[in-house]
């Protein structure tokens, strides 16, 4: 599974990265965390607000920092779908 954080490198984006990392650890899902900082890459996701979180190519949220439990629920749902 691929978890992607979209953000140009502001404090809020780093915070989202931290939450996502914690969520991956807690959920126990095998996932890689990628950070996309290039603006032309970010807009290809159709995202207008950063930070945004993408799981397996699907934009889960943008413009806010979801907290760890919420990310865990997305991760486990995505894991259940793939297996």
């Amino acid at each position: 599974m691929e978890v992607t954080v979209l953000g140009t490198g502001c404090a809020r984006c780093r915070e989202l990265c931290e939450e996502a990392r914690k969520a991956i650890d807690v959920s126990g899902v095998a996932a890689s965390l990628v950070k996309v900082e290039r603006i032309d890459e970010i807009v290809k996701f159709g995202v207008m607000m950063t930070p945004a979180l993408v799981i397996d190519g699907e934009v889960k949220c943008s413009g806010r920092i979801p907290r760890m439990p919420e990310i865990v629920s997305w991760l486990t749902a995505a894991a259940a779908r793939t297996t």
Binding site: G7, C10, R12, I39, M48, M49, T50
Partner: peptide
């Protein structure tokens, strides 16, 4: 509309395109 100055560029692109 919710806005944070670090989103100015993606918003700009999302609007004009």
């Amino acid at each position: 509309t919710p806005f944070c100055s670090c989103s100015a560029v993606p918003l700009f692109i999302g609007f004009v395109t």
